[in-house]
Design a protein around this nucleic acid. Sequence first.
RNA 1: GCGGGCGUGGCGGAAUGGCAGACGCCGGGGACUUAAAAUCCCCUGAGCUUGGCUCGUGCGGGUUCGAGUCCCGCCGCCCGCACCA
Length: 841
Amino acid sequence: MSETRFDPSVADGRWQRAWAEAGSFRADSQSPKPKAYILEMFPYPSGRIHMGHVRNYTMGDVLARYLKMRGAEVLHPMGWDAFGMPAENAAMEKGVHPGDWTRANIAQMKAQLQRLGFALDWSREFATCDPEYYGHEQALFLDLYEAGLVYRKESTVNWDPVDMTVLANEQVIDGKGWRSGAEVEKRKLSQWFLKITDFAEELLQGLESLENWPEKVRLMQENWIGKSQGLEFSFDLSDGATLPVYTTRPDTIFGASFVAIAADHPIAQRLGEGDPKIAAFIAECQKGATTAAALETAEKLGYRTALTARHPFTGAPLPVFIANFVLMEYGTGAVMGVPGHDQRDFEFASKYGLPILRVVARDPSEADAPFAREAEAGDGVIVNSDFLDGMSVAAAKQAVIARAEAEGWGRGTTVWRLRDWGVSRQRYWGTPIPFIHCEACGVVPVPRDQLPVTLPEDVTFDIPGNPLERHPTWKHVACPQCGKPALRETDTLDTFVDSSWYFLRFASQPADKPFDPEEVAKWLPVKHYIGGIEHAILHLLYARFWTRALARIGKLNLTEPFAALFTQGMVTHETYSRIDAARGVPVFYGPEEVSRTAEGATLIADGAPVEIGRVIKMSKSKKNVVDPDAIIARHGADAVRWFMLSDSPPERDLPWSDAGIEGCARFVQRLWRLFKAHDPAATGEDQALARKAHQTIAAVAGDIEALAFNKAVARIYELAGAIEKAAPSASRSEAIRTLAQLIAPMMPHLAEEAWAAMGNTGLVAESAWPEADPALLVEDEVTIAVQHMGKLRDTVTAPKGADRATLEALALAAPNLQRSLAGAPVRKVIVVPDRLVNIVT
RNA sequence: GCGGGCGUGGCGGAAUGGCAGACGCCGGGGACUUAAAAUCCCCUGAGCUUGGCUCGUGCGGGUUCGAGUCCCGCCGCCCGCACCA
């Protein structure tokens, strides 16, 4: 122990090699120990890891290392979500093959992760772009097809006519393609769908069992699934047709004053064919964004058609509008408008001068009360509604549904917001969908013995369109049924399919099938699943669905894959910018270009100030990124890991700061000095320090189990401070040894270095977590707050567990309390044992 | 628009309804040093008539012996809302 400083550039690599050689983190499914599967959402191999990854994987690593020390057999794997658009973008921009680009990125990122010393079982590593993986995925897709859970239907996509490609919503900016700038068209394509709606009720019910998921995520999924119950019925139209509508408020049916249909409703389309003005209005509606948020914020627009609809009870003719706020995808694409009790309808009716009728009131006496500036969507009693008058909203709903069903013109239905999952992507870099289109036989599955259907390597991205589509030979195959020339499906699977079962493959990797259900049962469900909140809905819902679907077809005995979910916050950083005088737009500068002091920031290049902007998520466009590699090279892995765990609660955003990481690096050295002071020969007891050490063992364990890493960090700072202040003793040496173990999950390299230097044999990573002595956890003296009328006046020291009378007497004797009382008579004394005494006068 | 979350020192944040500000960062003062770095010690919510008192957890009310915490009403900020991963 001669070094004066801990040198991570030497120690980090030494211990990383030691763990690898010892196979410390290989998960053994045969082990008799209790199993714990710790999983962080696997990364997309974009090229370099970013601080968000570092934070995510550090949290999982602390749990994995801690649970190992607590005696668990831990599975903590890592792999790559390797298909997706960025690889194709890179191919177009740099002329590099998506596969080459992806594999180079994986190699680079793996090395980066290894430099952070994560306790990962690399023997289970795979990438979703490995033909072995996506071949198994194709087999699973065929299984689901055979079970009737996969089908094809026409669906509308964003089509870029210049790039000849389908665009994601985020690639459509102001109605134009992000790359080409061309006006985006809506196009109908025949696409593949998974029947997730078959599982809507199950997925909704299943949320209740996910007690260790954030309430927020469960609520988001619940809203996404969007179960609603109401009435479906048809209006008779003035032209003799019928118009089915769906409403969740059948109780307000007597308040209907118009009917509205979606712009892409078949009736609207039909009317548009005969009337250029209607056609123009429909085109206008389709121009804008189509997300629910955009539609509901946009001004309500309608076109009054010549049609009227006959009210089922009153027979009154209601005008039929084509309206921009009605969604074809939800319900029947048509609604009855009740302006008095629906805000959208209210705005629409106000704009077009339609009657606003009151059918719900707080009290029957207010049946004719006027409306304020908005609809009244709340509960109340039904008025102005014939046979419904006097009923509650809930009773009236049932009454209308019952009447409609009895009279045969409508029925109570459940409508879901959840739609089937469209998995077709007209792109190259994804899992080929294993089907063949034959003119004679139709859609034919690829025979199992011909899997995997692999991607052709010889493709280029220099011209627009899908390379699979224009490849000279790849799609031309013989029909497996009739043998005649046929065409391969050229769509590939949504990458969310790849991430819907990867956690099963980590647990078990047979060559001849996707996974072995018995092996899976040993590890699943995942004990802690950690990732970003951005996956709250899609990925997590799809993975839950995929698990249930595989269970339904008998491939798996599992309903929920993730027992506990944790969503960590983002890593943020200040932004530095100046307004470009010529163009009037901000120009951003990276942290490495800027000199930051307590007073402000200046650009190193010219010494003039730059503006310090908001602290936001690290992003390339704002240039506020800090590269983990540079930080590791400078401060070592442990300082970075410690920073990731310090201060901010893990679910909240973590603001990166240079001062903060420097503080962490200083603490690493401070601990090293402390470890060097370990003296195995020291004798004598230090009760107070021993107590502190054992309290810290229990507290840190509790904090890690609650994922409150910031609190565990604070505890460790406190213990380190206490050890530094203490005089040498056997207790102190013991506390120092304990400290090395407590930091082992968080700062594993320093912990190993210290552990070895103290003369321990074996790796601290494989040592048993210290036992907290219950006798040392409780204090024998406590400080009691002495209050007068709820205000703190003094404190007294009392033995732990002292009775009420003792505490009251001690408190009343406290000099500052006496001064405050000033002789006033005591009316009441409140005693909270071991905490406080409050005197009321 | 709908749904959800969050507001505590200069900053990140602690606090089963019971001593508000643990712990860290920044800042200030001191020790050591020829000097610096490193390290160590002390101070660090605001105000005041400073051995102590008053105020203080976004704002306004309420419940309670006692409210950052519970209830009611506001204000502000952030996130999600179906082809990015």
